[in-house]
Simulated scan of single mutants.
Amino acid sequence: MSELLADKTVLVTGAANGIGAASAERFAAHGARVVLVDVDADHGEANAEAIRTAGGDATFVRGDVSSAADVKAFLAAAVDRYGRIDAALNNAGIEETGTPFHESSEDGWDALHAVNLKGVFLCMKYEIRQMLAQGGGTIVNMASVAGLIGLPLGIGTYAATKHGVVGLTRTAAIEYARQGIRVNAVCPGVVRTAMLDSAINAGMFTPEEAAALHPTGALLSPRDVAETAAWLCSDVSGGMTGQAVAVDAGMTAG
């Protein structure tokens, strides 16, 4: 077992599948105590049990990041169990599958913003309160390359939420830089997850076309992103705050 996150308690939202599930597993492998949060209780608890079976320390708490009451409740449960939250990965998010901007619905706009942006806002708000009380901590927000550049893929609302996540990240990083709290974002490229499968099934692109968005010609795995998140949650990255780190196989380089 790695010692990268030894003796740290890390909270992961959206931990039932995809990048969140991979991150919870990798954080535990790096020595962390992990609190998994998701609305999908079956898969979330199964992931926590898999970590415990492998010798790690993990707890699942059901929670909806778009609800302030839920956010306060799962953070309280984490602190009750482990005493503190050293790091948090605010990963929960939903996708938009190829809707031309002029055909976007107000309901779709509201739904994506409720989870992808308001959810990050609420998690950060209450995580920062806890971290101020305990003397510091680290927050990593899941953004996207769609939060850094424009992409003509019918994901205008999704891109708006992810640009918002980057803005929240940078602003909070500056505001709390002298209070022992670091805040960074990870901006993945095209990752092979259930969300990508939904986009492929919706006809946005084929797997080959998705991979071709990367100069490497290959899709990323959830573990690629999870390892970067683990590093940002660790003390090894202590000199970094306010950064939007692209994990994108070169997608934004040119």
Score class of each variant (00 low, 15 high):
M1E: 12
T9P: 00
V10Y: 01
A16D: 00
A16Y: 00
R26K: 10
A32T: 04
V34S: 07
L36D: 09
V37T: 14
D38S: 11
A41N: 04
D42N: 02
H43F: 10
A46D: 03
A46N: 01
N47C: 01
N47H: 05
A50G: 04
A50I: 04
R52H: 00
A54L: 01
A58D: 03
A58C: 06
T59Y: 05
T59A: 08
T59W: 03
R62T: 12
S67N: 08
A68V: 02
D70F: 05
K72I: 14
K72R: 15
A73Q: 11
A77G: 12
A78S: 12
R81V: 03
R81W: 00
D86R: 02
L89F: 14
L89V: 02
N90E: 14
A92S: 08
E95T: 06
E95M: 01
E96Q: 10
P100C: 06
H102D: 14
E103L: 15
H113S: 07
H113K: 05
V115T: 15
N116T: 11
V120D: 04
L122C: 09
L122E: 01
I128A: 04
A133V: 06
Q134N: 10
T138Q: 13
T138H: 06
T138Y: 03
G147Q: 08
L148G: 05
G150L: 09
G156F: 10
G156H: 13
T157G: 07
T157V: 15
Y158E: 11
A159G: 06
A160P: 13
A160M: 14
G164C: 05
V165H: 07
V166F: 02
G167W: 03
G167I: 00
R170G: 04
E175S: 09
Y176L: 05
A177M: 07
R178F: 11
R178A: 13
G180C: 12
I181Q: 11
R192G: 09
T193N: 11
L196G: 08
S198E: 14
I200R: 08
G203E: 14
F205R: 06
P207Q: 04
A211Y: 01
P215M: 11
A218P: 01
S221Y: 06
S221P: 13
S221R: 07
R223F: 11
E227W: 05
T228Q: 15
T228P: 09
G238Y: 14
A244M: 01
